[in-house]
Design a protein around this nucleic acid. Structure first.
Lengths: 178, 178
DNA sequence: ACATGCATGTAACCAGTTACATGATTTA
DNA sequence: TAAATCATGTAACTGGTTACATGCATGT
């Protein structure tokens, strides 16, 4: 089966958060707010919007502004709740981008899942490091490989710290407002 | 003009570092050593290898092992020395993967360039943060956006620290052996 | 010799880019 | 109203994926 399309979901997410938007306004969000994690060119966006109008997940009004339909909202909710696996992991940044409420339960479960996925990934990387680079000569003889592996480990460590912080905040906020 | 193909360069880089390799052996390197930064499926690799044989950047022997030609080496050297810009930045991890010598001048200049590129990118992100999120309400009202921006900033900070460390080591090693 | 598993090969399809083309709006 | 700029639209191409197909080895 073909892999699920994520661009439509992002478009709907934007419309849910920001209301009516033109294509250009969406492009601005993509290029300013989301560009670290997702890129969209206008030649990709406009045909996609046409398709989505045809599929009735969005509507377009006379001044070329798009709005999300109930069908679109359902599709988005379903997408948001699909579990993120290691292979899908790039979807995480997109999904949290659409979180409006810092103490939403969706955010907490997204964070917990992400922590689990990347925690075990870091373990895997550390194991590989111990196997491959436990002596100076192994490092010297595969220096490039050593570099990219240390980079990956450092990156994952930093990511986990960040995830932990955000999760802690979210959980505290939820407790305070119970 | 079409965007330059990088897969052939990676293949040549592997062959330069490891000598004769079969397709399967290359796939193993991709999936074990390089998977954090580049993915290749076998159905992409084999046709590419055929193309490269036709273009005479590699040769194949009777036991299906590939070797790099002088032409291939030239192409690789040229690619390695092409400057990396902000748009190209994902090439950095690939290029350093092929660095054999921890005190090579190529490594040092790659690192310096990467520091410059990501240093200014971090500045840009921090500026955006200051503009967008200087009050609690701005954070609360765009929490998802706040999250991805803090994530990007943290990631860049960690990356710069790592780059600094590696550069320091490389420079020290070069001085000691002068 | 055949069965099983692994390596290699190929074809159809899709997402995303580049390049080009048209509409619309602003400004001189 | 001409020109210029910006927004929208479209077509061709390509890198990469999925799915399917063939070769080749190894063990029984």
């Amino acid at each position: 089966m073909p892999k699920p399309r994520t661009l439509p979901k992002i478009i709907i997410g934007l419309l849910i958060n920001k209301g009516e938007l033109t294509g250009k306004q969406m492009l601005d969000v993509f290029n300013n707010d989301l560009s670290e994690f997702w890129k969209v060119s206008h030649s990709q966006l406009y045909p996609e919007l046409k398709r989505m109008v045809a599929e009735k997940s969005v509507t377009i009004n006379s001044s070329r502004q798009y709005s999300v339909t109930n069908l679109g909202k359902e599709q988005f909710d379903q997408w948001l709740n699909e579990p993120i696996t290691f292979e899908n992991r790039d979807l995480f940044a997109l999904k949290i981008f659409f979180v409006r409420d810092g103490k939403s339960s969706t955010l907490v479960s997204l964070l917990r899942n992400e922590l689990a996925v990347h925690g075990s990934h870091l373990e895997h990387l550390k194991t590989r490091y111990d196997v491959l680079f436990n002596s100076r000569s192994q490092i010297d003889e595969n220096y490039g490989h050593y570099l990219v592996l240390t980079r990956a480990i450092s990156r994952e460590r930093d990511y986990l710290v960040w995830l932990d912080q955000v999760l802690l905040l979210a959980v505290n906020d939820r407790m305070l407002n119970d």
